[in-house]
Nucleic acid binder design. Structure first.
Length: 176
DNA sequence: AGGACAACGGTCT
DNA sequence: AGACCGTTGTCCT
């Protein structure tokens, strides 16, 4: 009986594996990532580490968050210097998942629009909601939400500031 | 070209 | 139920 209880607690603890995080400079500014079992849960461009921690805690809905700066720097460097594509660990509503999926189909250097994405997932009228779902993209850069522009040619928004969006697009040779 | 505005749909509180 | 939004098409000046 006692044994059973401990097994269950152990399994629960293992099931909620801890998420590690850390930050480093990147070609596009200060960058933080959260990862678990070598899968990347989130990549963001916050102001500082404190904002990163808050964002991760809320977004990933966990209190098991531990700093691992060395590994974070290693992953960030690999991503930006050697275009390493880590596996992603994504969680979202079906609507969000389908949109994040669609975003990943857009090759570097190409752009799309909020309404095109809406059409692509079969909800042509959900344009506004597509905007918010794109804004909720947990993995910036790797899931290229920066490649989405307004249909009138405008920049649209960017969760981490338009300056970074612009930088990302310029680096891909997109002209605006 | 650019501003105001209503309609839209998913998500959060 | 209501408010919030990384939008868009339309109707103006």
């Amino acid at each position: 009986m006692k044994y059973k209880l401990f097994t269950i607690l152990y399994i629960l603890k293992m099931n909620q594996n801890t998420i590690f995080y850390g930050s480093s400079e990147s070609p596009f500014g200060f960058c933080s990532i959260a990862f678990s079992n070598s899968k990347v849960c989130s990549l963001i461009f916050p102001e500082n580490e404190e904002e990163a921690q808050k964002d991760f805690r809320r977004r990933l809905n966990t209190d098991k968050l531990e700093k691992n700066e060395a590994e974070a720097i290693r992953i960030i460097t690999a991503i930006f210097q050697y275009s390493y594509r880590p596996e992603l660990d994504l969680h979202g509503t079906p609507f969000q998942m389908s949109i994040w999926e669609a975003l990943q189909q857009i090759p570097a250097g190409k752009t799309s629009t909020y309404s095109e994405i809406a059409a692509a997932i079969g909800r042509p009228k959900a344009v506004r909601a597509v905007g918010t779902a794109i804004g909720a993209n947990p993995v910036a850069y790797l899931i290229p939400c920066h490649r989405i522009l307004r249909s009138d040619g405008g920049m649209g928004g960017y969760r981490w500031g338009l300056a970074i969006k612009k930088k990302l697009l310029e680096a891909e040779g997109v002209k605006m």
